[in-house]
């Protein structure tokens, strides 16, 4: 996995105040692949995800050591604008969080603010993004309706469409289906499979079947450390480390 690495971490330590949440994490994420991060609650997988688009900047009193290289550039270098990073590395959160705006305005919100003003262009972009998120057919006639009237699963796909409208290179997903019912979950998983043609996806999940179903690579975290990182198949059939095996077989978690 040498050539197509789009983002990588090098010896990353991360602190909330004096609490060390991540220790010496070194990982490569390959382009157009789905990488799953798994591990018990509090293991640091979500923290790592939020480091990749500098969302942890929003929390006071945090500190990063080591490097995170996106296309070869350290995104924590002083001259890097986190806003620019977040445009290129989108994020979908655990709970669907559409804005209290219309469906159309949810999708076009960020593109508008980044300078696209042409109405036709925005409409095309909205349709394209909603189609990519497999939501278009359900909402094409109600684009002006409030996003809050959609179901939870639809809201989450809207949030995906909203992130895709910025045409990011990487899509980070933080337990995107944990608040959804099984049918919505299945839809999102199918969607992830489609999206990896165009995007690199890094997904945090508590659901090991989900990790096994959707990802090519899986990293197992435990108490802030990357314990094992390999092909998903290898991790789930023949893990190299005892802790990984204990976790995926449900002996602890």
């Amino acid at each position: 996995m040498e050539n197509n690495v789009i983002i990588k971490t090098r010896n990353v330590d991360f602190y909330y105040g004096s609490f060390r949440a991540l220790t010496d994490v070194t990982m490569d994420f390959e382009q157009n692949r789905v990488t799953a991060l798994i591990g018990p609650s509090g293991c640091g997988k979500s923290t790592l995800l939020r480091l990749l688009n500098r969302m942890n900047d929003l929390i006071d009193g945090t500190r990063v050591e080591g490097e995170i290289l996106f296309e070869g550039r350290n995104i924590y270098a002083p001259d890097v604008d986190p806003v620019e990073i977040r445009r290129r590395i989108g994020m979908v959160f655990q709970k669907p969080n559409p804005f209290p705006k219309s469906i159309f305005n949810n999708v076009t919100y960020a593109p508008k603010l980044s300078g696209i003003t042409n109405k036709a262009e925005l409409e095309t972009l909205a349709e394209q993004s909603l189609r990519q998120a497999v939501l278009w057919d359900e909402v094409k006639d109600i684009l002006s309706r409030s996003a809050m009237t959609l179901s939870g699963g639809q809201q989450q796909r809207l949030c995906i469409a909203r992130a895709l409208a910025m045409k990011p290179d990487i899509l980070l997903m933080d337990e995107p289906t944990s608040a959804l019912d099984p049918i919505s979950t299945a839809k999102i998983e199918e969607l992830i499979d489609e999206l990896k043609r165009l995007y690199t996806i890094i997904i945090v999940t508590h659901n090991m079947q989900q990790a096994a179903r959707v990802s090519e690579y899986t990293g197992f975290f435990y108490i802030g450390k990357l314990i094992e990182f390999n092909n998903t198949e290898k991790i789930f059939t023949n893990p190299a480390v005892k802790q990984t095996e204990d976790y995926i077989t449900g002996r602890f978690g």
């Binding site: 969302m55 977040r86 989108g90 959160f93 969080n97 804005f99 919100y109 960020a110 980044s114 910025m166």
Partner: peptide, 27 residues
Amino acid sequence: VPQTFREASLALGVSKWQTISRIVLPS
């Protein structure tokens, strides 16, 4: 105003001031 609104906006690469003026203040 729910913190998730701010996060959602910032995660889209929208600046802090735009987030405040477009999302937080109207809410």
